[in-house]
Design a protein around this nucleic acid. Structure first.
Lengths: 160, 160
DNA sequence: CCGACGAACTTGAAGCGTCAAGTGAGGTGG
DNA sequence: CCACCTCACTTGACGCTTCAAGTTCGTCGG
């Protein structure tokens, strides 16, 4: 086999890594499943709706929304088009600067969030918050911060 | 329109949650990007090849492989078909029981893993292991274990 | 034995994300 | 004041995952 032998993973590091990848995939699946079952939307669609629902005027520029939802602009564009077709969101050019597009959560979309959020929050509690102690939650915030910094050092969101 | 008002997330819980979802997405993207760039394969394809490379005889039943890679059997079936087309894997019915299919890593696939693993491990170190202290790594293993148990209580893999 | 049932896949179609190539509005330099 | 450039998207095609239906192989009851 190889003879470069890079800094290989020892048993504990491997365990850390397996544990993390399993968690990543299991969580994604579980949340998508719950939202699909109870609300017929994907986790990303929910994130878009929920993020808009908390924004001033329930309105946000597409590019800002893309950053907050951790998605590409292209992905967001496709998703917002679908949400628009559902009658939950509308788009309008930013009057301050025609290059920007504003995504605006309209009434039916607000109602969708209100109807969906409680069940989703319950699931988040059940899968993540409830099984963890306060100390573990604090540790998880710090871990997330470190990893997110490593992935994208220019990310300056208030996620500490 | 609800007045149930479930146990809502407080500021810290919300921070924990945002931090975790951001990490989940950032990590998935970063790992897929690195593997795609350096080896032309997806993270899931790598997981399949790497898992097979560590199995006895470099052989595993499809259903066991699906569990270890956290994927559905259908997804695995499609992926293994592609890997087979690449000449990295072959399939054969289990001689002990014709209902099972064995996935077998052949020489070219082993070489692919050997060529790809060092760069991937480096990236895992850079993004996850290096930024975290020993204490945080221990905490992350425990957190992963708790969350994975919550998602699937029947999961009995040795992921402690 | 044989017929029904279930487990372990496999397949095809449909939907979502990505990537690359457009479009159109706002600067900016000459 | 107009050519050019860049930014903020938008679009279309392609690839991958999912979901629902098969198919095949054992097994178990009669």
């Amino acid at each position: 086999m190889d003879t470069h032998e890079p800094r290989w993973l020892n048993a504990e590091e491997k365990q850390t890594w397996l544990s993390l990848t399993a968690m990543v995939i299991n969580l994604s699946n579980a949340l998508d499943t719950q939202l699909q079952r109870d609300a017929g939307i994907s986790h990303f669609e929910y994130q878009v709706l929920a993020t808009l629902s908390e924004a001033a005027e329930r309105t946000m520029r597409m590019s800002d929304l893309a950053i907050l939802t951790n998605g590409s602009l292209s992905r967001l564009s496709h998703v917002v088009k679908r949400l628009e077709k559902q009658g939950w969101v509308r788009r309008a050019p930013d009057p301050d600067n025609g290059r920007y597009t504003l995504a605006i959560l309209i009434e039916a979309g607000w109602e969708k969030v209100v109807a969906t959020a409680p069940g989703h929050v319950e699931e988040v509690r059940r899968l993540v918050l409830d099984p963890l102690t306060q100390t573990q939650q604090r540790a998880l915030r710090a871990i997330g911060h470190r990893v997110n910094q490593a992935v994208d050092p220019t990310d300056t969101r208030r996620l500490d």
